[in-house]
Design a protein around this nucleic acid. Structure first.
Lengths: 243, 243
DNA sequence: CGTCGTGTTGAGCCGTATCAAATTCCGTGG
DNA sequence: CCACGGAATTTGATACGGCTCAACACGACG
């Protein structure tokens, strides 16, 4: 298996990610212990388990979710290229949710045990790790506000717009069209809605000429209308770290 | 105003918090730039603002919340002694939610500009900061699952039990009774329920002999029943850092 | 060609929201 | 000391958004 060197990582080239110094790159080179390719459906991390690995998504998409005693599932977030996952196990001792690949994925693998070395030797990278964690916390706060305070149409519009923006920033998809390899059930479980109602709500968005999601492709027909419906604040993409 | 030295901080004595090394304590001593006492209702941090300060709660309680365009409010979390807040502004550039004092509060004040020094000079404290951020992320994930997947009775039971446990770990309150200086509206906004329904749900918990919340005092009458209703996982309190 | 996973649509019900009003508690001022 | 006003809690009546149940359509796959 040919492994990509961090310095020539195609993700890192994107202007969305902050440029690393030479010593940071050199450290990452050693920090990276391998690459992992998985098929759709593969569980990367399991809730309660104590994984020795941390991953950065290189390609493909997945999702993070929790399962409750009553069998219901809450999708916490969609996992896209550039995302770091597994930090919880690295820091808190065990994963508090599961991570599953939705499409085929390729991931960069780090060794959890080396995390402490990173903190001792590379304070700027340590800062980046915290930045990522804080950023994730921010996102979950927004999601909570969505599930807690918005109605079904607003929730769906918010989620579709959010994921569309994230993918666009990464240069994935073209114009108003991005790939979205999830099931309606996944979106429903992310938004605290039933599958049936999510389906009907998607139909209404389509009928209103706002957005269309078919055959794994999301097409945002009226981005402004979507933003207005979703009550989404304008967020210009900020440069972020990539580990 | 007499200011408490970190090494003799009453919070730090509790066995809940990990013991600091001498050099860590010495650093914190310099990192701490002052103390702040505020009246109930004071806004400590405002959404969108770029606060130069980071706080650790010494005494009193508050809440973190977001306000949406439609006027609705999502309470993100309840702020208790030992909690660190303001990190988002320190890391991401601006606060993504507001923080308000509910009771009178006393806080430890840090200078955001010194955070980078902490990362360069005290990797163990930097690690702690990340731990706290990851821990908060975990909590928000649980909350999201609660708001997204539990019904009203389960949500209220979950929230009351959670806050009861947090306060008990801190040694606040005695036995099954802890102070809870919030309004029902605050709980409603935290759980995505209307005030009226929250009130009726609290009444039902009282009638079932599970919990009672009156006059700012929360009394958990049947902790096991509450845990069962809330589908709450058992979490033994883990030693955590205190900044 | 049957089966399974996913998407779609209709019918009816239930949990929660909304509206409205009474009650209690307190701080304030006459 | 009592009248008053405002905030928080409580309770009842009604409306509706979203859930559940059920059936069907469609393509992928063995």
């Amino acid at each position: 298996m040919t492994q990509i060197a961090c310095k020539s990582c195609p993700l890192r080239r994107k202007k969305l990610f902050r440029a690393f110094e030479d010593d940071e790159l050199a450290f990452m080179e050693r920090f990276k212990t391998g690459e992992l390719s998985v098929d759709p459906g593969t569980h990367l991390l399991i809730e309660g388990a104590n994984s020795p690995q941390i991953y950065t998504v290189l390609e493909g998409m997945g999702l993070r979710y929790k399962t409750l005693e009553n069998g219901r599932r809450q999708v916490i977030n969609f996992l896209l290229p550039g995302d770091l996952t597994g930090l919880q196990a690295g820091l808190l001792g065990e994963m508090k949710h599961s991570v599953q690949a939705t499409s085929a994925m390729r991931l960069c693998v780090f060794n959890r045990a080396d995390l402490w070395t990173l903190y001792r030797r590379q304070p700027s990278l340590a800062y980046d790790v915290t930045w990522i964690a804080a950023s994730e916390e921010h996102f979950l706060g927004e999601t909570l506000a969505t599930v807690g305070q918005r109605d079904a149409a607003q929730r769906v519009a918010w989620a579709l717009l959010k994921i569309y923006r994230r993918l666009s920033e990464l240069g994935i998809g073209q114009g108003p069209r991005v790939p979205l390899p999830y099931r309606q059930q996944d979106l429903a479980d992310a938004l605290g809605l039933s599958l049936v109602h999510t389906n009907k709500t998607l139909g209404r968005l389509r009928a209103r000429g706002l957005a269309e999601w078919t055959d794994g492709q999301l097409h945002i027909s009226d981005a402004e209308g979507m933003a207005e419906l979703a009550m989404a604040d304008i967020e210009e993409p900020s440069i972020r770290p990539l580990l």
